[in-house]
Design a binder for these strands. Structure first.
Length: 330
DNA sequence: TCTGGGGTCCTAGGACCC
DNA sequence: TCTGGGGTCCTAGGACCC
């Protein structure tokens, strides 16, 4: 049995913890370069601000009403750790899934609803972060329960099969964990629109048409756990540092500068995790929002002679690749 | 006219998640 | 004018090996 604890509008809620004057106001947290909305308070959502919506696309009259903050990831990480500490104290097995979500193993807990309500309240009281809890016999069902809890009530348990049947009959496949918009459209083309319809479709057909990932979602909907709780975070397989340039860049020197900065930062991340990299990749993309211009996305990956987290090695490797490319162009 | 049967590694693209 | 920044897994196809 699983629970999913998820902070509401997490970044926006964090900002409110440190500035209570923001409570009740339509608050938006912006990405790097202050480009897109990456978190919205309930009030900002009500005004129609979308997730990842470019802020310049928000109508002026709406923008005037918003309170806007640039993202402060150090702050969010700090509050995330505080929430996690409370969860670990309450349950023996916890999987931190993202900065604002954790799965809990509820095995051995008799009164799940009471436990969840108490935990939710404690997280809110001790950290200031409002949150919701979803409960289910599989992770996919716990996720769905959480989504429903967000609509009101704060805690939803989908363990009971009658409750579950009623909920899944009206739950769109596209809202399921692991089913995105493309797959939802493909499912709809076959007449599968609700989670209940996916659950009850012939499994062999689902496997052939949609692959093992969706077949697993189907099994989980049926109540058979396929996705295990992972208490220990696996080592990263790649670490990426990338940024959009605010404006057009056609200066090679500026790009080389950015590459050097990113390489240093990537190495810091490696060292913080006690890892070394076996290879280095560099990529760049032209402006995808100007499709009328010629597009290109050069990339190059090389293996290092010896795995490393030394910025000097990365910088030298990056330089060699640039030289290589120039040679190739000649 | 016949044209093996495995296996691994790498890359690119697609789809998804927060 | 301004359009996020991370991650993961799966699949297919090609190169290569014995």
């Amino acid at each position: 049995m699983f629970a999913l604890v998820d902070g509401n509008n997490f970044y926006a809620s964090c900002e409110r913890v440190f500035d209570p004057a923001l409570r009740g106001k339509p608050l938006v947290v912006l990405s790097n370069n202050d480009g897109c909305a990456i978190a919205r308070s309930a009030e900002a959502k009500a005004l129609g601000v979308g997730m990842a919506q470019p802020i310049h696309e928000v109508p002026k009259d709406v923008r005037r009403q918003l309170v806007v903050r640039s993202a402060n990831f150090t702050l969010y990480g700090d509050l995330s750790a505080r929430v996690l500490a409370i969860l670990r104290d309450a349950a023996p097995r916890v999987e931190p899934y993202s900065i604002d979500e954790s799965f809990l193993d509820l095995v051995g807990i008799h009164d799940r609803l009471a436990f969840a309500r108490d935990l939710r309240e404690r997280v809110h009281r001790w950290t200031g972060i409002p949150n919701c809890v979803g409960i289910g016999p599989t992770k996919v069902l716990a996720k769905a329960a959480n989504k429903i809890a967000k609509r009101g009530g704060g805690v939803v348990d989908l363990t009971d099969t009658a409750t579950r049947d009623a909920v899944l009959a009206n739950y769109p496949t596209g809202d399921l964990w692991g089913v995105g918009s493309r797959t939802a459209a493909k499912l709809a083309a076959r007449g599968i629109r609700s989670a209940a319809e996916l659950r009850d479709a012939p499994p062999a057909d689902v496997l052939i048409a949609f692959g093992v990932t969706i077949a697993r979602v189907q099994r989980e909907l049926q109540g058979h756990p396929c996705i295990a709780l992972e208490e220990i975070e696996p080592d990263r397989k790649q670490i990426i540092v990338s940024r959009s340039f605010g404006q057009r860049v056609d200066d090679h020197e500026a790009i080389a500068q950015a590459l050097a900065t990113f390489a240093v930062r990537a190495c810091e991340k490696l060292r913080r995790r006690g890892l070394v990299a076996g290879g280095v990749g560099i990529f760049a993309n032209s402006d995808v929002f100007r499709p009328e211009l010629r597009q290109h996305h050069p990339s190059r990956t090389v293996n290092l002679p010896r795995p490393s987290s030394d910025s000097r090695v990365m910088l030298a490797t990056g330089k060699n690749q640039q030289v290589d490319q120039r040679r190739q162009r000649r």
